[in-house]
Design a protein around this nucleic acid. Structure first.
Lengths: 230, 230
DNA sequence: CAGTGGTCTAGACCACTGT
DNA sequence: CAGTGGTCTAGACCACTGA
């Protein structure tokens, strides 16, 4: 068998949709009929069509049947690697430098974002990540000490806060957002660019079962791009 | 049945991994043993573990078994909607204006990017998308006329080029990339911001079975963010 | 070559929901 | 209430690959 049967079925159905045999908004035949047509078990058709639904090409509803979506929802998927691996995968030599590490009372904007109590303590760590000694990313991180008390004593010079956290604590939920920002004086000096330069910014918050763990702003060197195929 | 059995199994296994019962790098029991433990069919365990593998939590190999990944590859998924729907889903009124539409010889950078012949013709369309009459996105698009000759005569005033293309032609492959850019004079005027302001930029190329269809630069209003949970 | 996952089947029952 | 998809099962054979 060159291909799994369910993949064949999936491709045939996908082709019929893009070729317009089954048009947007229309119903496609039910699973039993398709199984008969393709000479396979209903479960095989089910898996094929289920995956097409996950890809956003069709919509399935009990009793109503399977409908071709009018505007296929395209989904782009990005892998979020550890910055060290990202740099090393480009064949560059990784290095990082911790430029600040201090326990603070969490500022109001952070308390709001992470849902912390008044007076809550947070560890503020900043560091710069280099690839082949060129600045690659500036990391500005806050760690909730109520959730992770022993973070206060951690040594981030060997293992960056990013990797330290991954080993120290799992997380159940994360939110990430991307935007553009202008370099301020601090960023300009760390990332070796001009004040006002447009920089790509990624922000991430993570939680473990309701408790905020960390919030981080990752600002990338000038010209950074995040690319994917889909 | 409150939950499908395979979802229960999936949750239990996921929990054991994050709790450290099965540690990174270790093998988890094989499907038959798990099926016995959970009192279900092997196919049920298979679906649960297969989905965990798709999520990047474990790695499966025949004969070798299923291994917990050391650094779980986290994947963030974004939906790429049509700009009109994006705006309307925020409860705003959508409108767009075509500000340029003209057939050109494809410039060299475009020929390189889309793999076009020397002298190939391309349609260059620019338009601005508004939400509640505030500029939201500037769209700067090139369409390969060799692949889509009748695009030259299209009227993009009713339906934007984005939606027109989706109806006119399917695509098999797409590449999208995100970065930050500074507003030039043109962008500043269309997006109502200052020259030099940092703007979020999305670029997308699409192909249909090897032939380039279109390349588009979508520059967003100041402060635009793209957010997702994962 | 033997163990593990990959897939398929035929049949069954169930859950949801349009009519 | 009837049709469609959602899920499960028990068993089977196969494909890959580590030992």
């Amino acid at each position: 068998m060159l291909k799994a049967a369910f993949r064949e079925v999936k491709e045939i159905i996908r082709d019929r949709i893009v070729e317009g045999v089954w048009k947007p908004g229309e119903l496609i035949p039910n699973e039993i009929d398709l199984a008969v047509e393709f000479g396979c078990a209903r479960a095989t058709v089910n898996r094929a069509v289920r995956e097409l639904a996950e890809e956003g090409l069709v919509e399935r509803r009990r009793k109503a049947g399977t409908r071709v979506l009018a505007s296929p929802v395209r989904r782009a998927q990005f892998e979020i690697p550890i910055v060290r691996k990202e740099i090393e995968s480009q064949g560059q030599i990784y290095r990082h430098a911790v430029v600040g590490q201090k326990v603070n009372k969490a500022p109001d904007w952070l308390r709001a974002r992470m849902n912390l109590d008044i007076g809550a303590l947070a560890l503020h760590v900043t560091c710069v990540h280099y690839g082949d000694n060129n600045p690659y990313q500036f990391e500005d991180r806050w760690i909730n000490l109520a959730a992770l008390p022993h973070a206060a004593d951690a040594d981030f010079t060997k293992t960056g806060p990013n990797e330290w956290l991954i080993e120290a604590v799992p997380y159940s939920d994360a939110e990430i957002s991307f935007s553009a920002t202008a370099a301020d004086k601090e960023l300009a000096s760390y990332l070796d660019c001009a004040v006002g330069d447009p920089l790509f910014l990624a922000e991430r918050s993570t939680w473990w079962r309701g408790d905020a763990i960390t919030y981080v702003r990752m600002t990338f060197q000038r010209g950074h791009r995040m690319t994917t195929k889909y």
